[in-house]
Computed example of a mutant assay.
Amino acid sequence: MTNTNLSNIGLDKKSSDEIANHLNDLLSNYQIFYVNLRGFHWNIKGKNFFELHLKFEELYNDALLKVDEIAERVLTLSKTPIHTFEKYIENSEIKAIENVVDGDKAVDNILASLTILLKKERATLKIAAEAEDEGTVSLMSDYIVQQEKLVWMLSAYKQ
């Protein structure tokens, strides 16, 4: 007899729904973060143009991969990922920023965005661990390690 409280990957359905909600919130924030990074890449000016232009491209490519991974994890949990800009804007704590040409302002925005993402990833990791959702735990752990290092590097850049 099948347990109707378990998802198709063997996790508690109620916990999976909660994790998927957290992931959708994270997805919304990543989409706005991605768009901001693209704008920084396109519009940056000044003496650090070459260095920052390349770094911002690296960061938006990474954010784009994470967007896809998060959406696919939501689907793995048998839920639907948020997929409209209207919902991204409505749900995101990270706010869209435009016309940033100053490198320091862009880096400050990235650091502030990473603070938000790390907070959300840690919260998602916690509920996923409690639900024994190793797939989400692993994803969040990888993101956190990578972003903590990025915060350190960008903070060192600013000094």
Rank of each mutant, 00 (worst) to 15 (best):
Q31L: 13
A106D: 12
L111N: 05
A156C: 11
L26S: 00
S113A: 11
S155K: 04
I70Q: 02
K13I: 15
K45E: 13
I97G: 03
K87I: 14
I89R: 08
A131Y: 02
I110K: 03
I89H: 01
F85R: 00
R122T: 15
I127K: 04
G39I: 03
H53F: 00
Q159A: 05
L26W: 06
P81C: 08
L117Y: 04
A96P: 02
W42T: 09
L154T: 01
S155Q: 07
R122C: 09
R73E: 10
K126A: 15
T84D: 14
K14H: 11
I32N: 07
V151H: 13
N91S: 12
Y34V: 08
D25H: 13
Q31S: 11
A156L: 06
K158Q: 15
L59W: 06
L11E: 05
V107E: 01
K13A: 12
A112M: 05
K87L: 12
L26Q: 11
S7N: 09
L65T: 15
K126N: 13
L118V: 06
Y34L: 10
F56P: 02
K158R: 15
I94N: 07
K45V: 08
A71I: 02
I97E: 13
V67Q: 09
K126L: 12
L77P: 07
Q146I: 02
A71N: 04
A112N: 15
I144F: 13
I82C: 05
K79E: 08
G39P: 09
S28V: 01
S92R: 02
T136I: 01
I32Y: 06
L54A: 12
K105Y: 00
K55A: 06
I127F: 02
M1N: 10
L52S: 05
E58S: 08
I94C: 04
T115S: 15
G39Q: 10
A96M: 07
M140K: 07
V35T: 09
L11G: 11
F40A: 04
T124K: 06
E69N: 15
Q159P: 00
A96Q: 06
Q31M: 07
V74D: 11
Y30C: 00
E90F: 08
L111V: 02
E93D: 08
K14F: 04
D104I: 11
K119T: 14
K87P: 01
S15N: 15
L54I: 03
E72H: 06
K13R: 15
E72V: 07
A128D: 12
K119N: 10
L27E: 09
L65E: 15
I9S: 10
L64N: 14
E98F: 03
S15H: 13
Q31N: 12
V151D: 01
A131M: 09
V137E: 14
W152M: 04
N3A: 14
I110V: 12
D104K: 15
G103F: 03
I44R: 02
K95A: 04
A106E: 12
N48R: 00
E51R: 05
N21C: 09
L52A: 06
H41T: 01
Y30V: 00
K126F: 10
L154M: 10
D142V: 04
L64Q: 14
N91D: 02
K126W: 03
K95T: 07
S78G: 01
L77D: 07
K87C: 02
F50S: 00
M153N: 02
S78H: 04
Y143G: 04
G39M: 05
M153E: 03
